[in-house]
Design a protein around this nucleic acid. Sequence first.
DNA 1: TCTAATATCCAAAACGTTTTGGGAGGAAAA
DNA 2: TTTTCCTCCCAAAACGTTTTGGATATTAGA
Lengths: 347, 347
Amino acid sequence: MNLLTFSLLGVFNVPITIRDVAKAAGVSITTVSRALNGYPDVSVETRRKIVRIAETLNYRPSSVARSLVMNRTRTIGLLVSDLSKGRTGHYFMFQVLYGLHDRLAELGYDLILFSTTSKRQQQISYLDFCTERRLDGVCVMGIRLDDPYIHEVVDSSLPSVVIDLPLLSDTCGYVMTDNVYGARLAVRHLLSRDHKNIAFINGHSQAAVSRDRKRGYEEALREADLPVDESLQRHADYTADGGAKAFEDVYKQNRSITAAFFASDLMALGALAWCKTQGIAVPDDVAFVGFDDIELAQFSSPPLTTILQRRYEMGVTAANMVVAMTEGTDTAQGRMLAPELLIRQST
Amino acid sequence: MNLLTFSLLGVFNVPITIRDVAKAAGVSITTVSRALNGYPDVSVETRRKIVRIAETLNYRPSSVARSLVMNRTRTIGLLVSDLSKGRTGHYFMFQVLYGLHDRLAELGYDLILFSTTSKRQQQISYLDFCTERRLDGVCVMGIRLDDPYIHEVVDSSLPSVVIDLPLLSDTCGYVMTDNVYGARLAVRHLLSRDHKNIAFINGHSQAAVSRDRKRGYEEALREADLPVDESLQRHADYTADGGAKAFEDVYKQNRSITAAFFASDLMALGALAWCKTQGIAVPDDVAFVGFDDIELAQFSSPPLTTILQRRYEMGVTAANMVVAMTEGTDTAQGRMLAPELLIRQST
DNA sequence: TCTAATATCCAAAACGTTTTGGGAGGAAAA
DNA sequence: TTTTCCTCCCAAAACGTTTTGGATATTAGA
């Protein structure tokens, strides 16, 4: 009997079920379930016997059966918007993902990935995907302000947390860096170095973070009673290439600038490379401040002054929030994480 | 009735079941199932009616119930080994992840993430996780040769694909770049530029890719009848910092070197930054070749000559392989992807 | 007209759990 | 002695699907 079971497992890969354990222990499946789940109405010896047998049979309860009956999957979806855009944003997203996954695992939840760009998601909406998989909650990352489906998630009764977009409802919280403050930190730092003509290379305008960073940039200038000159600002796309092109443009149009604030390190590093080719010295001719603190920022030459975003903690916070909402221990809320100025040699 | 259903859905978030559809259409749940799944034994009018009602009720079949009865989840696990190590490897892993996810979605599979370092995985083994979730297959990435649990996955009957580690069994395939060839390309290129003393900064020795790249480096030297000098080789950890330190060491010990081959772009970029601080000119004093072609490689100064790895395609290939094994349409096999030499200005 | 074939449908079982609502037996309380 | 109360256990229902094995009309063939 035992031999049969084992050989079945080995050859046909049929997993051991609770029934097998019950049979081997000579008890009902009810008792096995209650014994393994720590209910008090099981005698000590019975419980020990069941646990031992479950271990020797290597019994693993099917989470899919459990999900069905308990009506919750202990699974959180991560909706990544521009997973397919390929290159940009990885530096940011990977660490958020890591924090999110780490904390979710700690809380006993699994993470399932889906993106807006995959062929499947173009036929079935985000929300439909979530209900089909009976997800307990969802985190959204990299979404744009003009995404047509974003409100479907926000308005649904499924607990959700949006990263880098301040959307708040009964069932939808958010977590983001205080980008206004971060941009102010950057520009104030440049002002303290006596720069007056400060260019701003922003990311694409359909990101909430872009708007906030622009606001911070302008507020810092106004604080110092300096004019806000739109001709010193450019929109790029958060890529190194785009940053280089945008900086080239603003620099050629306006030779009086002595500093530039970039809405991402990647764009700053791209511009830095361009400066090298043109013989423009950083920070002597023009000072650079980036945003994000990606790993390579400290290894550029000169090392890049930048605004640190706590990416890992954003993920952890998102995990905590979505689980709290799922379990009903807390309501939806927005959370701002403080950025930090890292002064290196590009200023 | 319809109104009641809708309000229940809205307020209590109780998903519509097949029973609701059946009741609304006045047929049995069997017929609903068969109608929606395209079986032929449903009349045209009945099918149309059912489809219409399913749509208006916004019915989404529960994939967990379906998984239970069909005994397959259409879910693939991605086991990432050093997700928690934080920084290194993202540049590589994110794109593999993207290719994997993209192709899996196309094939109708979902991707669930788990890592060896999360607290949960330290109590329950990889394989136990897979059987609990009843995964149909698993891909493994970033694992080290000395990982104690790797054979648990390889030897199990669960279809698996390992990335960057040539492990082959009945149920375990692999996909990797031809690292030996890639390293040979790199070193041959340096040799063609008349370099004779070529340093090699490798990653940690417990990665299969490190061993292969070392082999390619040495083979290329032997091809050119040059001696293999162990004192020109160093092991680092694939980080920018480690690359810089290792290069500093080998350079100071051996001033005669005129070129260096790095087992990753990140290490090369770290060393490049160190060279700047020391006034060492690249490529005039020493030529650099990296490995990977991460985005920033083209934006360093000078832009980095490197070996391109087809990361996205590795993910796509892994997806194809694991699904083929899962569905029994193909057996386990190993696949090597060809790398490519990108000549830029660091050589 | 009767039979055979076909088209259309359905009841019930099954998947592997958890949970509900007891039941049996023994000990304590009356 | 009877009643009450634990302690320990279990049968059955439920979760939402798919699939099996017919059943019932309807149509075609004889």
